[in-house]
Design a protein around this nucleic acid. Sequence first.
DNA 1: GATGAATGAGTTTTCATTCAT
DNA 2: AATGAATGAAAACTCATTCAT
Lengths: 174, 174, 174, 174
Amino acid sequence: MTDKKKKILKTALNLFANFGYESVSTAKIAKRARVSEALIFKHYRSKIQLLDAVVLYGQEGFKELVTNIVLEENPKTRITKYIDLAFKIRNEDLLLWKLEYKLRLNPTVTINTFQKPIHTTLSDAFQTLKFKNPKIEAQLLMYTIDGFMVNVLSGEMENSTKLKSQLKNKYSLK
Amino acid sequence: MTDKKKKILKTALNLFANFGYESVSTAKIAKRARVSEALIFKHYRSKIQLLDAVVLYGQEGFKELVTNIVLEENPKTRITKYIDLAFKIRNEDLLLWKLEYKLRLNPTVTINTFQKPIHTTLSDAFQTLKFKNPKIEAQLLMYTIDGFMVNVLSGEMENSTKLKSQLKNKYSLK
Amino acid sequence: MTDKKKKILKTALNLFANFGYESVSTAKIAKRARVSEALIFKHYRSKIQLLDAVVLYGQEGFKELVTNIVLEENPKTRITKYIDLAFKIRNEDLLLWKLEYKLRLNPTVTINTFQKPIHTTLSDAFQTLKFKNPKIEAQLLMYTIDGFMVNVLSGEMENSTKLKSQLKNKYSLK
Amino acid sequence: MTDKKKKILKTALNLFANFGYESVSTAKIAKRARVSEALIFKHYRSKIQLLDAVVLYGQEGFKELVTNIVLEENPKTRITKYIDLAFKIRNEDLLLWKLEYKLRLNPTVTINTFQKPIHTTLSDAFQTLKFKNPKIEAQLLMYTIDGFMVNVLSGEMENSTKLKSQLKNKYSLK
DNA sequence: GATGAATGAGTTTTCATTCAT
DNA sequence: AATGAATGAAAACTCATTCAT
């Protein structure tokens, strides 16, 4: 992957995440990435396939995070890790998350959200911890995190430390 | 408000909610509403002001729901009502919710989300019920509901009955 | 002629003269004249016919001025009157002149410029005064005035007193 | 500058000069120039900037003419050259003049009319020739030429030979 | 790999005009 | 006489995409 090809990808991620796929023209991407508009099409064939590539590239980052959770043996730690995920997004990952949630509400392109493996592994953890209805429990926790993310990503920064500890308390985590 | 003017508003709500503001052209709205494109601009001046009008029109509906919660005196019932809100969206309101959440992530236009009054009233309820950190508690509940909504609105219909009762259980509601 | 009909005419003159026929929409005229757009068409049938009416209305004013020159018996006074014409445009007539010259360069509508009678009467005056080539002489004087007008109307206010006396000097007028 | 880009410029000059900026649509220009409408905007960004470019392109031509007058040492010849300017417009320059005068009355875009340098150089000539009030004299001559131009450009072709010689006579030029 | 030139189909918006009341 | 509602056609401009080099 040449420098310019990568530059296009990163610029597209940045713009799509911040302004939405529809609001960003290929011309704008080209300008920001300091490449010709034609090059975008040489490398990615169409705007939608560029989005595809961006999403795929983003998913690389997510995969790592998910794996880290799924492979955690201790159920409490596993849940803790999941919760921590949302509360300490690395700056570089912020764009990925923004795009992810935008695409969930505006499914321009099919994305793999890793929702299912997360749900499975959390259900398993709750079951091991003898929670009633572990599947439902996992679902509810995931919703809470989703809701938190949506709010954070739309710009409202909360005092997340208190939130996190209170949430962990609910599951007797520290 | 003439029939056609209202028709434009409803059509716009429908299309904006389902496909997003950017993806819907005024031509498409006009066609679906069976009016001339020019009429949209006669009545609403610009596409963005049409969105404004749509949002305002939508908010009318929300106001009622929020009032119903805020005015509830019994704290337990108040929280229950809030939870129920998300779990039994009237079909006619579905579009409003879709648009609301789309706009939250893509703030094309400033919307009043009623988040603040809801938070205040829920905090108050939790305080009355002697919960620790009632504000945080309210916040977390709201996130859970938000997360649920996001998932529901992006098309994943869950077995919501179990979810609802489990969630209510957490707050010792029935 | 009703008040509103006249208001439309005057507003149209004002706008056409200042911004040009093409740049002024019937909507703008209606707004400024505080009448409905439809009324313009009730009274004048079309935008171009409104211009026609405006021009005709303007010509009323000109006719008077021209007559005043043509009927002047003394040749020197006649020429003097013509020169004075340009140098003391009444404020109310300014719009008429603006429109006149705009239409001369952009003949949207056929206008009667009174050029011919003026030329005839000036030629006659110069002949009486024994000028060589009185027709050409008249033509040249008319050009000078035209040029002066074009410059005045495009906003460049000159120290016209000196100009006038110098010009009159050339024809031994005072 | 590619062929098509130049073609657009020339076509625009032609149409703007003959029909006026407002009356000529970009669609018409594109059609006449046998290019896509989009290309106009690729090359010139907006209709008004196209006019800008046209004017700039035109001014190139004028600059030459003006220089030729200003650099003339002999005062009589200098004035003669100025007068001749108007009386023998090269066919290719006609469009430039039309546009120039149209824009003077309808200042859609700021144009450099070279009025000032011409006035200075003519004043100087008249002073050298011991005319009284050389500045005013220059002004009057310029008005006469302006007036002549306005009339010629609005289509009234006069027997200009006689006019020219009579005008020159006034300044004892041949 | 990279670009500048070019375009067809679309975008939002404005236009002059008509019609029912 | 006067208006508000309504429209077809056109306006300027943008879009994603192709192609020759």
